[in-house]
């Protein structure tokens, strides 16, 4: 059992990082470009972003591999650089000195029929390839995240577990808040989806992106009663607003931190942020979390 798995077993509170893409955009990544391209072209900026999170108190950082599956890389003109990008990104995250490095696995960006023309065989191949390359780079765990289709999340989970049988795998879906509760855009409801992931072998399950910390607090309450496995919750820094032609997530670090400390107190083991959260949000949250992790 590696030390991250051990930490999951002890149910210690683990502070994750915040958004990476939005942080790189603030450093000049052009809108529409793939953040993964900076792993190759501007590694120092990626490394510095990770370091800023570690300095702010993140126990674990996500390697910049969110879009580094073959299907998505092809769209950014990086089709033949899967190994270079994934291995390089894990190395940059490791260089930050973080206690733990999470290999980040995001969606292919395709949808299954009737919504799109996605092909599960191709997905599986892409996730297996990325999983193997990432596993060889030596992360402490995997985090499959921002999945809007439970089917794709389960496919990724199966492929990652096959690629790296000994590493813990976290899986986060992206939910919207509807009148009838929390659903993915494909209509997967919260509690049954989290249970399906846990049954599929996920070592921790949860939600990231789209929702604000206030909505995530409600989601976390439902999630905590739905499953017994550790939970991971990463909201955005509020709803997006626009200023001077650019887009911002404007929630103040303190407001974010107060709500996320409440999320942690519900028994959510891993807390962090998604779009628009930056090291200030993580630092503010760090101050509000119990100093030595939550007792079991």
């Amino acid at each position: 059992m590696n030390s991250f798995a051990e930490r999951l077993r002890r149910r210690e509170t683990t502070l994750l990082d915040g958004g990476l893409g939005s942080l790189l955009i603030a450093r000049g990544l052009v809108a529409g470009a793939a953040p993964e391209s900076w792993v190759v072209s501007r590694p120092d900026d990626v490394r510095r972003a990770h370091r800023d999170y570690v300095a702010a108190g993140s126990d674990a950082v996500h390697a910049a591999t969110f879009g580094a599956n073959a299907i998505r890389l092809a769209r950014g003109g990086l089709a033949d650089r899967c190994e270079e990008v994934n291995a390089g990104a894990v190395r940059l995250a490791r260089d930050s000195g973080a206690l733990f490095v999470l290999a980040d696995v995001g969606p292919t960006g395709e949808y299954l029929p009737p919504v799109g023309t996605g092909d599960r065989k191709a997905w599986r191949k892409a996730f297996l390839e990325q999983g193997k390359v990432l596993a060889a780079a030596g992360p402490d765990a995997f985090h499959i995240e921002t999945m809007t289709d439970l089917t794709e999340a389960l496919d990724a989970l199966e492929a990652v577990k096959e690629s790296a049988p000994s590493l813990p795998v976290l899986v986060s879906l992206t939910f919207e808040r509807k009148k009838r509760g929390f659903f993915t855009i494909m209509g997967n409801p919260l509690a049954p989806s989290l249970r399906a992931l846990a049954e599929g072998g996920a070592d921790a399950v949860g939600a990231n992106c789209t929702l604000t910390s206030a909505d995530m607090r409600r989601l976390a309450e439902e999630a905590r009663t739905a499953v017994d496995v550790p939970l991971v919750i990463q909201p955005n820094a509020g709803a997006p607003v626009r200023r001077d032609g650019a887009v911002f997530y404007a929630q103040e670090p303190e407001a974010f931190a107060e709500e996320m400390a409440l999320v942690a107190s519900l028994g959510v083991e891993m807390v962090g942020g998604c779009c628009g959260t930056d090291p200030r949000h993580i630092r503010a949250l760090k101050r509000l979390l119990p100093p030595k992790g939550k007792p079991t």
């Binding site: 949808y111 009737p114 919504v115 659903f183 993915t184 855009i185 209509g187």
Partner: peptide, 15 residues
Amino acid sequence: EEGEYFLPELVQGAE
């Protein structure tokens, strides 16, 4: 908008 239909139903309707 009511949260009764999701993307698959939306797309099938459009089809």
